[in-house]
Design a protein around this nucleic acid. Structure first.
Lengths: 119, 119
DNA sequence: ACAGATATGTCGTGATACGATATATCTTGC
DNA sequence: GCAAGATATATCGTATCACGACATATCTGT
């Protein structure tokens, strides 16, 4: 996937969070793993996206301090994101829109269904 | 469809032109009809898109003068667009990418397949 | 001590969907 | 005639957003 289609990233991130709350970096890894490397969500894409989701109320965020060996200084910071009920509805809408989009595109694609993988 | 996803418009326009060459305004109407009004391609979207397609060599364009009752003055101008062989390949690529995208998203969607249409 | 992984973020750029706007021609109804 | 609306093409400004590059700090393995 060269450039993900609009809303795909949001759907994918919401779907990951629907399984369990995650912190940003873990989301990156989860998306990469589950998409078999086809979707890469880099920091410059992920964090603005999460900020949008939080601002819209689709996710709630909570800071966490990871315990470390060292007793001094602040530990590594992690920001955990959890899907809100509004976010669940949003995810359902995305899925619904996706299905509608697929069936609609089928109208245009069907006559050219002989499309072969380019060699 | 609030905001068409990236590449959808291009796929749809190429698919329309794959059936037969069309001029701009006719493409707008064809897309509207075939999508049952779900995709609207206004002038400000269509013409830049067609210009991109022509520039990339996916379509070839030819001006046509429509015969009118009046013998004086220039008739109405129409610009006909036809799919090139490069455009055919492009369309096949779009379809292929679409199918790949759908199967990949299924990985994320499947666990939430209970998504109900929002009431 | 150093490299590399982990972890979160900002900044600038390029692409592009879309409303608004402009211009001109053709058709239909009165 | 002539006005309204459909036909037909095109540009401009704005808002959104994916992405590479960069910045900063912590933790782990050697």
């Amino acid at each position: 996937m060269s450039r993900p289609q609009r809303d795909d990233l949001e759907l994918v991130v919401l779907a990951v969070l629907a399984d369990s709350a995650q912190y940003g970096y873990a989301i990156t890894k989860a998306v990469d793993a589950r998409s078999d490397g086809r979707i890469r969500v880099g920091p410059s894409v992920l964090y603005p996206l999460l900020a949008r989701l939080e601002k819209s109320g689709y996710v709630t965020a909570r800071w966490d301090e990871v315990s470390s060996d060292r007793t001094e200084g602040p530990g590594r910071r992690r920001k955990w994101y959890a899907l809100s009920s509004k976010g669940e509805r949003r995810l359902a809408q995305h899925i619904e829109a996706h299905r509608a989009r697929v069936s609609m595109l089928e109208t245009f694609i069907a006559p050219h269904a002989d499309a072969e993988p380019t060699p």
